[in-house]
Design a binder for these strands. Sequence first.
DNA 1: CTAGGGTTAG
Length: 605
Amino acid sequence: MMGTSVLNYNHHLLPSKDLPQSSELNLKQKEQEFLRLLKKCKSLEEFKQVHVQILKFGLFLDSFCSSSILATCALSDWNSMDYACSIFQQLDEPTTFDFNTMIRGYVNNMNFENAIYLYNDMLQREVEPDNFTYPVVLKACAQLAAIQEGMQIHGHVFKLGLEDDVFVQNSLINMYGKCRDIKMSCAIFRRMEQKSVASWSAIIAAHASLAMWWECLALFEDMSREGCWRAEESILVNVLSACTHLGAFHLGRCAHGSLLKNITELNVAVMTSLMDMYVKCGSLQKGLCLFQNMTKKNQLSYSVIISGLGLHGYGRQALQIFSEMVEEGLEPDDVTYVSVLSACSHSGLVDEGLDLFNKMKFEYRIEPTMQHYGCMVDLKGRAGLLEEAFELVQSMPIKANEVVWRSLLSACKIHDNIKLGEIAAENLFRLSSHNPSDYLVLSNMYARAQQWENAAKIRTKMIDDGLIQTPGYSLVEVKSKVYKFVSQDKSYCKSSKIYEMIHQMEWQLRFEGYMPDTSQVMLDVDEEEKRERLKGHSQKLAIAFALIHTSQGSAIRIIRNLRMCNDCHSYTKLVSMIYEREITVRDRNRFHHFKDGNCSCRDYW
DNA sequence: CTAGGGTTAG
């Protein structure tokens, strides 16, 4: 761009009749005419041509006029910053406005470093920044996550007394948010007297980027209460994300509703976060439906639906969609591979997973991350290829983290490989020793091998270390309200009715051949007591409650914090058949769809 | 006199 000089007279793209004739107009009118023409330019070439005429007429005198010319050029979308730069350099005394224009131009062109350098120049040349300068220069800091510069600039804001400008405040919230200094973001947000939609958007986004989901929803609630509420896609995208992570299905659906009411066509980002919300809150159907109706799909939308299918146990379909994505010419990236590999792992598609992993490394040249190795260790381990899984852990170019060791340990438990399990546990506890469920898996492994002493030793260690087993619970939504059940729960006023139901269910299940499986009850009590305990597992209570309070044939959705036990799994399969209900259960790792006596996991979980 | 803040999802 610099190659084309300002003084290039050779291109005449505009018909000469459009150019003002000097004889007809006085200077002032000519100036106006030129400015009008400049604004109409559709390309840099056209712009240069008019600009050259202006120089030829010697009209480049008025500061307002030259600022206008500069702004037209710098803020155009024809990649004209070099040319704008050459105009800027010819200004004798660039004003605050001119600096603002140039800084904005750099930011628009993603050249954030230059924006900050120019701001620095501005200070050096003692041109005083104003309330228009800061939003844009702070945006540059935000994009670069340049906290040092950001803080200095925050100081300048105070020095110039601009700290009460809403635009400046919003930019500061955003800047600190992008620099992960949530305390500063909140401090500025709190002391704002007037908050705009952008203020809420910035503060919610700041919390979302740190995965502070409860805070996101709380802020969203505050915002709604203060009546600043409008279905803004940029805000709802983060709110939906929070719903996804918290399993807040009801709120998510409400958000969808208000989007539909207020916005005619939802953009890709909102569609993708909606899809993810539905899928991860248990409604794969709804997610698939949205996916199929999306006109524009990208890598992110594909990876959401692929990982969704995987989580729900539909590995084959996940692979199908993955190949459709490739056929459409969309190149899978590292996250897409995490989705498809984990889908393979959930469904036990070992060969397919291995193939994809190799393709990713050697064909697409994507360097595997810890997550990819985690998927592969999980894939092999679950499938019983424990030695291979262990070899992979040892040969990984990066040091395995706790997630990888954890999945190896639980695979060893499933396949009763104590020797390897102990190695995995040792490494796991070296990296993290505060997770009660890790000890339980290990103790469980010993118990399965009837090594009672070792099992007891681990449990004693847990108690000595003050680790308390996370209480398991099940959530169930009945008529848009969420009810929480813990094991042996007696807290609901209708609980006698629930236990009555439990009793009745057990009777019917036994008729269909149900035998309580007490092997996973890790309590030192007799068989009879174990069977009693089993009956009161939170998932069973939740199902009984839902069977009583929902209409015949309607689906039941349950969210658990822990993995369910084998007994609850086979119990739920039978309930789905006898009571003719579809039951979806989300546990720590995945979804189970119970229908007609079967589960979508095909007992591979 | 000209121009401005939050561009989000896996």
